[in-house]
Structures are given as C-alpha cells and as structure tokens.
Nucleic acid binder design. Sequence first.
DNA 1: GTTAGCACTCGTTTCCAGCGAGTGCTAACT
DNA 2: AGTTAGCACTCGCTGGAAACGAGTGCTAAC
Lengths: 343, 343
Amino acid sequence: MSESLNERSKRILEAIIEDYISTAEPVGSRAVLHRHGFALSPATIRNVMSDLEECGFLASPHTSAGRVPTAKAYRLYVDSLLQLRGIAEDEEAAIRRRCSIIGKDVAEILKDTSRTLSTISHYTGIVLAPRLAANIFRHIEFVKLGQRRILAILVSEGGIVQNKIFESDAELSAADLGRMSNYLNDLLHGLTMEQVRRRVLEEMQNEKVLYDTLLKSALEFSEQALEDEGSEVFIEGQANILEQPEFADLEKMKEIFRAFEEKNTLVSLLDRCMSARGVNIFIGAESRLSSLEGLSIVTSSFRTGANTLGVLGVIGPTRMGYGKVIPIVDYTAKLISNLLNSQ
Amino acid sequence: MSESLNERSKRILEAIIEDYISTAEPVGSRAVLHRHGFALSPATIRNVMSDLEECGFLASPHTSAGRVPTAKAYRLYVDSLLQLRGIAEDEEAAIRRRCSIIGKDVAEILKDTSRTLSTISHYTGIVLAPRLAANIFRHIEFVKLGQRRILAILVSEGGIVQNKIFESDAELSAADLGRMSNYLNDLLHGLTMEQVRRRVLEEMQNEKVLYDTLLKSALEFSEQALEDEGSEVFIEGQANILEQPEFADLEKMKEIFRAFEEKNTLVSLLDRCMSARGVNIFIGAESRLSSLEGLSIVTSSFRTGANTLGVLGVIGPTRMGYGKVIPIVDYTAKLISNLLNSQ
DNA sequence: GTTAGCACTCGTTTCCAGCGAGTGCTAACT
DNA sequence: AGTTAGCACTCGCTGGAAACGAGTGCTAAC
C-alpha cells in the first residue's frame, strides 16, 4: 500500500475531487469516465478507486453510493495536485474596487474586507482584527466625558484605534488631561507596544513622577488603556453557508452557527496562522476543532513590514473550490497589507 | 361580527395565544380546556373559536389541525390582554451584571448589550448604534499616520468615537495637526453636531481663516470627519433563531439570515423607532418588510436627556414570549441610558 | 493488466392503509 | 338562546411493502 500513488491514480483522484467539489454528490466510477475522458473502462476505474479507498483517500457513505474524498485527499490535492492559475482578472478588479481605505476607520475597512471575501468566494469571509500588542504606538489621548469619567483613545500604526471608558478617582480638568496626553505622547513616541508597556512601568519608579500626582495618574491611566482587549473578529456572509448542500441538515447547521458565535475558538485558530507567511489551509478536522468538522479554512496574514497585523480568510465546506479561493485570499491579504501601510 | 369581543372570547383567545406561544403547535378545542380550567365543553369552545376565526384572530393551517393566532390576535394580545408583571429579579440582576461600561468602548458596550439581550430572552438581540447627528460634540483630534495620511478622531457625548482615515493634499507636521485640533476644540466646544456643522461652514467664510491655510485645512478636514457614516447595527445571538421550530424549514431560514445580513432594511425599521418613547412592537408584516414575515421585533430607544442615542431590542418569532421580552427590553434600554449618561 | 458480465447491496421513492387529532353539523337539553 | 353530546368527515402523519436504480465487488475471459 505505497503512499506514493502512480500518475494514473493521481489523475483519477484529482478527477474525483473536482467532480465532488462541483456536484457535492458521491462520485461513481461511471461519472469519472463521463466527465473526464479517461481511456479506461468503469471496471478499471473501480479497481483504482478501491485502492484509493484502501489508502485512505476515499470513503464510501454506503455500499451503493459512489465515493467521497477524505480530508487526506483534499490535503494531497491542495499540496500537490492543484495547480493555481492565479487570480481571475475580474475577481482582482472586484476586490480592489471594494477594498478602500479613505473615509473609513480600520474596523470598517476590515469588516468590508470580510464581506468582500465572502461575496467573491461565495463562502464565508473572516478577518481577525489587528492585535495591539505586536504594533507600534502612535498616539494617546484622554477626553473628559463626565466629572470623573474619562475616555482613553489609543492609536497605533496603520490607524488602528482602541478606546476605553474608565473612571478616575479624582476629578481632572480638560487641561490636565491635555497635559497628560502630551507627556505620554512624548514619552512613548515610536515605541512598540511591548516597549511602551515596559516604559510605562519603568517610568512609574522615576523620582520626578513620584512627586507629581498628575504624571503619576497619567501613567496609571495609560496602563489601563494599554490592556489589550483581545482581538476582534469579523465574520461576514454567514448566510452563504446555507447554500451548501452538505449543511442542509438542521443540526449540522446549528452547530456551525454556534461555532461562528463562539468567536474565541476561532480566534485561537486564527492566532495559529498569524506567524505563518503565505496562504494557510486547514482542512476539516485538521483545525482540531470539532465544531468545524466538515469545514475548511483558507487564511493568509496581512502585515506592515515585519509586523503581522492580522489574519484574513475564507471558511467553507471541505468541498471548497480551493483553486479559486486560494488566489483570492492571497491577493486580498496582500492588498490590505499595502493599504494599511501608511507609505 | 362586532370587533369588540365579549369577556369570555377574550379569555379564550388569550388562552390559545399563550398555549401557542409555549408549544408552537396549533391548538385545538380540547387543549384549551385541558390546560386552562374553563367550565365549558369542547363544543362551546369550538363555537367561540369559529367566531374568532371569522373575526380574523385565528387561522387554521388545515381542517384537522387546531388553530393558530394571527398577527391581529397578537396585536390585541400585547395591547390589551397581556398584563406585564415587570421584569423578573434574576433577569434584572443578570442584565445589570452583563452590562458594564468601564474598560470598554461604546461599540463594545453595545455589542455586549445585544448579546445580553439575546441570551436573556433566548431570541436574537439587536442594537442600533448611536448616530452622530443627534449628538453633542466633545472632542476632535488629528493623528498623523503617514506622510499624507491622517486619522481623524471625533468624540461625542457618551463617549461615542468615530474615526476616519483620509489623505491630505499637503504634508502637515504633527505639531500642525495638534494646533488644528486645539483650534477646532475651542471653536466647537459644547455644540450639537448640527450646530457644529453649521459653525464649520460659517467659519470658512471668516476673513482671518481665508488667509491662514492651516485653519482652512483644519476646517476642511473637520468637514470630512463630520460626515456621518450611517449607523452601525449589532445583531447577536442569531443562532437562537435556529431553535425556533417554525423556522425548521430551510428556505425560511435562509431568508431570515439574509435579512440579518442585509442590515440597511433593519436600520430603516429601527430608525422609525428612534423617536418613539417607551417600548415599540412590530408584529409580523406590520414592519412592512416581507423578509421579516413571521418575525416580531420589540424595541426601545436609549437616550441621554432629550437626545435619542440609539435603539435596542429583540427579534423573535411572532410567537414570542411578549410578557417576558417586553420588560427585558424596557429595562435594558433604561439601564443603557443611565450608563451612557456621563452624570 | 484490463474489461465485460452479473449478482448483490442498500438507500430512495412511491404507494397504500390505518391512525388520530380536530372540526362542523345536527339534534337534544337546560 | 345558549350549551352540550354525538357523530360523520377531513386530512396530515406514520409505517410498512414494493419497485427502483445507482453503484459496487467478484469472476472469468481477453
């Protein structure tokens, strides 16, 4: 049972996978013949298919149905059978047209990107918003909302804005808050968030600061403001999943929508893709998340320079049109990287 | 066929509606008798039900099923039959525990609120984020992102932050941007957004401004930053809809999820609730949105003083537990109003 | 190694009978 | 006149049997 299939077996497996991707129905020996022009008889195909099943590439739902590719088959398919033909021109144009920056905030940009991914791919788009931690400090600002209520606004590279409301012990004037902002902006200019955090802690030991209550509370506030509030996920086009015949079963569908709402698990999955360059593919159970059984995820990270800003991708059935989706995800990630790079 | 039903008919209708709300199945004459202690025979109930059908309060799916309340019946029910018993203590406690302000931004607060609404009600939560237009100016800030790329941050009352990225024609230094912010903050302090907009336009005619390019571009920028980007909607707990037996049909469900994704229509519906005080209820087709057929929406607006900030509510099947949902929505709206009121 | 032929498997569809919940009508009762 | 018992009737649902058909695996021949 050698794992290295011969050329013919590979071609047949490829045909079966592509057939199944387009029809969503178990494919039988005659179907392979019909739609692809092999110069072989059904019986021969059957023999090959039987071998492929033994090697774990195919499975039969029951005796008298055709066969269905396994996760292993898809893995082989995306790794060595599939030849990427690059992104289609009209798709590229559509993505470029829909992803713009001007006049939006970053959250909006990413949400629109997620929606674009879903619309173009006809599956579900997912974008993991940038995390603060890995990023570079740009600006901090405190705004007085009420007597003691203060809004902290933190801006990092690429225009990512995080803001938080909190309450101060003492009442501070708007001018005080302005001075605090200035002090911190000078102090923290150009540092990474890691460094910012360390710097704030160091500075709190500083003698001058110890005797200046204003500076002291400035540092205390910034410490609170810096607490990373966890990443945000934008999942758009969930309804596209409903079109997939394999999820016609109500129970299965509930599970998927629950998984979409339970964003933490998705975040941890996408976190794993953060560091990897290029396109990443999880097929079915490979994600180790039982709730995503039957689903595949194609992701790529976007970045400014060496900094990974976030991850975007497409979720669809394992029976996904990888040949189309992979270039889409790849291109979109690169486009967003460029857009967020402030020159 | 007098529209004013006698007391007995009302009581029977009420019993039918409540039965249907809890079972989701057409209710027959015997069921009414079983679960509520009417001193009547099934035959009498049947006669009454027949009358109620003629008046348009009931409908029968087919001859041998029981009967189902119509939208008209629910309307009568919420308007005059239902007696609200106020919110349950444990629900109130749960809502209060889940809705906090400190350490979050407003978007996060509202999203969490939407989630809370869905969790407590077991239906789907919806929150329409505050619109800028109706609100009071607090702060504006420009942050330099790249050579020409600028981030504008606009804060209004309650801590609502709106930010936008745009590009300037000329390169401006960080100090320039700081001066611009200060100038505008002085100029616009305490005005409503309406007044802010007018003030900016007036000021652009000012002689002093005409000769100061910095002031001029400050005003131009603020004009761009002020453009309202439309309201944001947070819909959480969509998966709860899947639990409702009436949406077991795949087609129906697709329609609902599409409607949830097509947020514009929902926004326009919620906009209609903005001005109304107290709890608002749309039953089924009353919303005039065909995609929401079979769904009811219970909403209430939240506000600071005279200003309506936004609308929140619950979406569920017309067969919704109004008696439970109405107090929940009412209480949550009041709570959020209080929380966003910066004293 | 490949192919034709054939028996066999097994899910799907169709049809029909029987069941039961619920109604509407009529006639009797208070 | 309103209420009730009785009864025939409707109609969706359930379950089992039969027919169907797609697809396989095996064997024997090429």
